[in-house]
């Protein structure tokens, strides 16, 4: 089956098996391997990408569901020579170790900061009538779908706080 969608600003047309996940379409067909396959069933967050502005687990989504949509992967956020500010903050704060969950963490971090700016509440939001703030607990709660087994959480929190302009 053919799917036409936009990946990192580039129009793509792929012929894929209907069983092909968005994750495998990116990694195996487009060879955009920055998006990682960890658990492959929605439990670890390593495959997080941004689809039409919202973060999703690419492993839980079939490629053919993305007809006409816009997908942003880690490769679309920055390059080694031109880093996104969140990528630079992860490097400065050592917000990673083995690096395998890192692209997912960064995609999530960028989306989380946007969600907070957009006023979307979370489980940790104490006052649902007030605008959520980028507090430590608010960000940690929203990042909790992205597992880092190396345990870089404390450093990721500092990287995100720096980008959000708040105290860690």
């Amino acid at each position: 089956m053919t799917v036409n969608f936009e990946v990192n600003g580039i129009a793509r047309s792929l012929t894929v098996d209907t069983r092909t996940t968005l994750l495998d379409a990116l990694r195996e067909h487009l060879q955009l391997t920055g998006t990682k396959k960890g658990c492959d069933h929605g439990q670890c967050g390593a495959c997080t990408v941004i689809a039409d502005g919202r973060r999703i687990n690419a492993c839980l989504s079939l490629a053919v569901m993305h007809e006409g949509r816009k997908v942003t992967t880690i490769e679309g956020l920055g390059t080694p020579d031109l880093l996104h500010p969140v990528q630079a903050a992860f490097i400065r704060h050592d917000g990673y170790q083995c690096g395998y969950c890192t692209p997912g963490q960064i995609c999530s971090a960028i989306a989380v900061l946007q969600e907070i700016r957009a006023g979307i509440p979370s489980h940790a939001t104490e006052d649902l009538m007030a605008r959520p703030q980028a507090t430590n607990m608010e960000m940690r709660e929203r990042m909790s779908g992205n597992i880092c087994r190396c345990g870089a959480y404390s450093n990721i929190a500092q990287a995100m706080a720096e980008v959000a302009g708040v105290k860690a």
């Binding site: 990528q87 992860f90 490097i91 960064i106």
Partner: peptide, 21 residues
């Protein structure tokens, strides 16, 4: 010292085993 491979890991360009097309 920042990791010398940090720019690769944070941009998804460090190649792991299954990805080496």
């Amino acid at each position: 010292t920042d990791r010398i491979e940090g720019r690769l890991k944070t941009t998804g360009t460090a190649p792991y085993a299954y990805e080496r097309h």
